[in-house]
Design a protein around this nucleic acid. Sequence first.
DNA 1: CATGAATGAGAATTCATTCAT
DNA 2: TATGAATGAATTCTCATTCAT
Lengths: 200, 200, 200, 200
Amino acid sequence: MIPKTQAGMENKKTKILKAALKLFTKYGFRETTTSQIAREAGVANGTLFHYFPTKDDIIETLFLLCSLNAESYYRRGLENYKSIKGKFMQLLHNWLNFALEHTEQYLFINMYLTSSYLPQDEKILVFSEFIEKIIEPGERQKLFKDGPPELILEVTCNLLHILIVHFLNNRQKASDPEYVERALSFIWDSVSNPHALSHK
Amino acid sequence: MIPKTQAGMENKKTKILKAALKLFTKYGFRETTTSQIAREAGVANGTLFHYFPTKDDIIETLFLLCSLNAESYYRRGLENYKSIKGKFMQLLHNWLNFALEHTEQYLFINMYLTSSYLPQDEKILVFSEFIEKIIEPGERQKLFKDGPPELILEVTCNLLHILIVHFLNNRQKASDPEYVERALSFIWDSVSNPHALSHK
Amino acid sequence: MIPKTQAGMENKKTKILKAALKLFTKYGFRETTTSQIAREAGVANGTLFHYFPTKDDIIETLFLLCSLNAESYYRRGLENYKSIKGKFMQLLHNWLNFALEHTEQYLFINMYLTSSYLPQDEKILVFSEFIEKIIEPGERQKLFKDGPPELILEVTCNLLHILIVHFLNNRQKASDPEYVERALSFIWDSVSNPHALSHK
Amino acid sequence: MIPKTQAGMENKKTKILKAALKLFTKYGFRETTTSQIAREAGVANGTLFHYFPTKDDIIETLFLLCSLNAESYYRRGLENYKSIKGKFMQLLHNWLNFALEHTEQYLFINMYLTSSYLPQDEKILVFSEFIEKIIEPGERQKLFKDGPPELILEVTCNLLHILIVHFLNNRQKASDPEYVERALSFIWDSVSNPHALSHK
DNA sequence: CATGAATGAGAATTCATTCAT
DNA sequence: TATGAATGAATTCTCATTCAT
């Protein structure tokens, strides 16, 4: 995730971010103190504030970095699919892979988006593209159940999250493509219109 | 006739719990301080600790009370249904009604179960009965999708929560029995085995 | 100054204010830390913040109290004088007496009004009455030199301050009424119009 | 020809001093941080400490430099006057001119001498010459009011400061020689013995 | 039972200063 | 000489908890 550029200089910043990522996902935002982060990172307390003026800055920076990394995942292979359902399913796979390969980052994004630590309006909508490219076109094709796109998004994200947590706790099952496929289809089944002719 | 002193005693304890419930659900566990609770309850700071040795005790007590109240709701009318699906759907209705009538209590239970304020292992499993009475029998009848009962439970609870929040924000829709029925069926659709003959 | 009411309750608050008054006048606002004040007052660090939410609150409270005390001094005997000059001179004596009897309080007021620690606009004009009752009427009678009333006030206050500091460092001279009278007349000489017939 | 390296060296030192002078007079000693000074000077944080081992060193150096500059002003034209009053008045004009032409330097000297940032005993008496050459001889001639020379000095400096601030805020008035003359005479009137025959 | 003053262990943050390069 | 990353002691302030009354 965080670039490991020219040694020394970025090193401490990286260490701080790594420590923060680890502790935040383990204990929560408020439960993690800046001195814990500094200690875990092996730097002095003041060093942390040399790089990040406030605790919130660490959180925002982490969110930005994790989002960028996630983005590089969730676009993958979308062009291979013409159908909405194909794109939808691919996106679920992409998120799952991201979560499997960058578990802390995935958990951090989830924490950030659901936390009450930060005011709602500061949260960037990472999923706007998902709505624009998949849900709204899908609705025009009557592929999804009736209801506001936000609700479809909510249901999708939450079900996906549950399944992701399931796979994180049972990593061996994540190696079985068939099992994964079946699990992820539940999501489509939940939000798609059963009467639609979704001729894949 | 209830003796005055005892009434008084219960009064303050109750006031504290009510204040805590209100503030916790509004601002979160860490964001609510014990002195805020005392002020809201109209009692002295020390009085709060007379009844509850620690802040966590208030939270635990509230969870217990809310759980008991919830329990009295979610058993309602279950005996009217023989089929697993009937019981399952009734249970969803019960939770929804509980949330509509005791919104703060419902939100508190949800907060408690998802919060990182308390270590995971302290959280009591409120839904064990749900698993024993509905999911496990249902699985034996192949009514549910394959997967561990905990996963079915998780999916059910999360979808239900999303819908409940939707209804809390759109209370007038909650008065339309047909709309409610349709919304809650999505949950059954998500977790039930489509190939099962669920002849109610 | 600070009321010593019913023992215990006010005690700590009083101790804190006394300690703050002493340290602020000795070392300045920024140079005095809240823990120094707490230590000097013999109370715990948190106790200080139990009574005063912020450091600035201590300063504001002290200023208010000192101002009230000063007020009770600088009105004394003014009614005995009909002439502007008589009132003017009496006021100088009153301030001097206040400074001699409540040195720290006088120094605190002076610090507060000249400090850059607090934003200008928060400073209450303690001398508005002086301008209204003495300088402006005096100007209408052409008793003072030409110039904005604020400048007359400034010169008066500054000269007075210099003399007060002189007397604080040479207290025995303050016991010589003649010497005091002569010293304070310098101020009148500086700001009064030499051509005016100030027939006392 | 000035060697490049040396020029560079002086350059940075000068930049730091200029930046410090600007910021100190604008915000105060404690309110100005060393990194603000470095930033304003356009040098690295460490560079500042290469030239000045401590923050206080910057302040002391500035005071020395400003004092030297002031000195070059306040001696000007003194030799044209034989009388004490003539010299006294010339000195006031010199200070005023210094303040008008080097406002920040004047304000810095004033700040330095009145600040509680530095312990009293570190403050050097800049005005010893004033006392030796003007006040003490003047007192022997009974030109000044009775009182210790330090008091005469204090009164003079403070009144002068008030007037200087007045002129800094009303620079157009400083261009009117007659107005200036009248304003500065107030000072002489305040400290001089009215019974003395000050036949210039 | 009830009070609320008192506590003190941290919390986030600041900043003059150091030091390796 | 010049840099700027790194430091850590100190600062203001928070808050769950205690305790004498």
